[in-house]
Amino acid sequence: MEAYKRVALARKKTRPTGQDFIDNLFTDFIELHGDRCFGDDPAVITGLGQLMDMPVTVIAQERGQNTKSRVKRNFGSAHPEGYRKALRQMKLAEKFNRPIVCLIDTSGAFCGIGAEERGQGLAIATNLMEMMSLTVPILSVVIGEGGSGGALALGVADEVWMLENAIYSVISPEGCASILWKDASKTKDAANCLKLTAHDLLELQVIDKIISENHRDFKNVYRELKIGLYKSFKKNQTLDSDQLTINRYQRFRKYGAIESIAKL
């Protein structure tokens, strides 16, 4: 399938959002609010739930399911307090030795005056650094759109999975077309060049697994995710915490490692 078609599917308004995934993957879910510093960011839902018989911390970006909730959720674009709330929950997960599930779905971290004033760059940077050394298993799943740094701030995990029609990109194809070619009509070309589909990214080893989607029915997706997450956490819980963080560091260390960039 053409890359831009995937972009359209990933952004489709009827596509299940973070909240749908929470409802279908976990039982006994309780939402926990606030970053204890500035406020509560509705673009990120954080809380606790049971993954079968395993208590887990859940962090999900939420785009909103109808016009009213999309406005409330800022269309899934988080402010710094959203990332700080996520980090607070991750630290709690570490304290109580719970695995962490991150569900990524955002067009990007919000670009606005308030976001800059409150340190958007710092908030993302802090998450990248801290997630790298958390001593509990983390698994991130890109369920819709993975928009640049705003997605990566929840994406430093032991494994990163993607739904078949999700995308994950350094910049939106629109942004790329307008910056590089000063031509918004080249969006489709940009989508191709950026290698943002799940299949491309599996080949580049940016992700570890694709969850196949079938005929707009997400029941299979939920089932596969539920079992997959559970198995992965069980496996990673047997590792001692040093080994877990070494593996996570190595997972990201390999991108552009000196042996692979060659041309010395």
């Binding site: 990566l152 990109s169 350094v170 990214l201 580049l204």
Partner: peptide
Amino acid sequence: GMLALMQM
């Protein structure tokens, strides 16, 4: 592309 983002 994403290989640049991963550098972060």
